[in-house]
Each structure stands twice: as structure tokens, then as C-alpha cells.
Amino acid sequence: MALKFELVTPARLERASDVYMVTVPGSEGDFSVLEGHAPFMATLRNGAITVYATQGSEGEAINVEGGFAEVNEAGLTILAERIAD
């Protein structure tokens, strides 16, 4: 089963895809979200979220600023003010 992952910036819906796992830099420490995670909301510090498309695959880092993460039964949604290159 896959985790539904969405990355949204004010300008547009940056990414919506099914992934295996996402590691998120929470303001009180990093955490990883797999499919079926308990409902959770957290503010993020500026840093890289890492997206693992499949189990054991190489992680893809995306730098975000001003982020907020919400996990519910629909999946993981990250609202970021900006994606740094």
C-alpha cells in the first residue's frame, strides 16, 4: 500500500503522488510518515523533506520553507510557503 502524498505551495499544487514514505523535518524533531499513520499535525522547520517513492529506493530531497504538515486518513499533506531550489 502506498501513502498519498501532497505538497502544496500558495502558487500551485506542487506534487500529488503515491509514495512509500516521507521524512519530514518537524519543528520538534524529524518524523517519518508511512501509510496508515495516526492523524497528526505539526509545524515544520525550514529544511528538506525526503520522499521515498518505493521501499528501499533512494530518497528525493525537497527543500521547503514555512511548512506545515497534516496527516489524516487521506494521506499526508504538506503546505509550504516556498520551495527552495
Binding site: A38, P39, M41, A42, T43, G66, E73
Partner: peptide, 23 residues
């Protein structure tokens, strides 16, 4: 409330709200 599941917050609700309201 969605499905009655308890949502965890990190930090607490008020801190998140204080962060999100200006946004």
C-alpha cells in the same frame, strides 16, 4: 470531527494556530 480519531499535535494546538493564522 473526522471519524472521531484523536489528532496529535506537535507543538500544541495553540502554537500551531498561532503559526497558521498569520499565514
Amino acid at each position: 470531527e473526522i471519524g472521531g480519531a484523536t489528532v496529535e499535535y506537535e507543538p500544541d494546538e495553540e502554537a500551531i494556530l498561532a503559526d497558521l493564522l498569520p499565514r
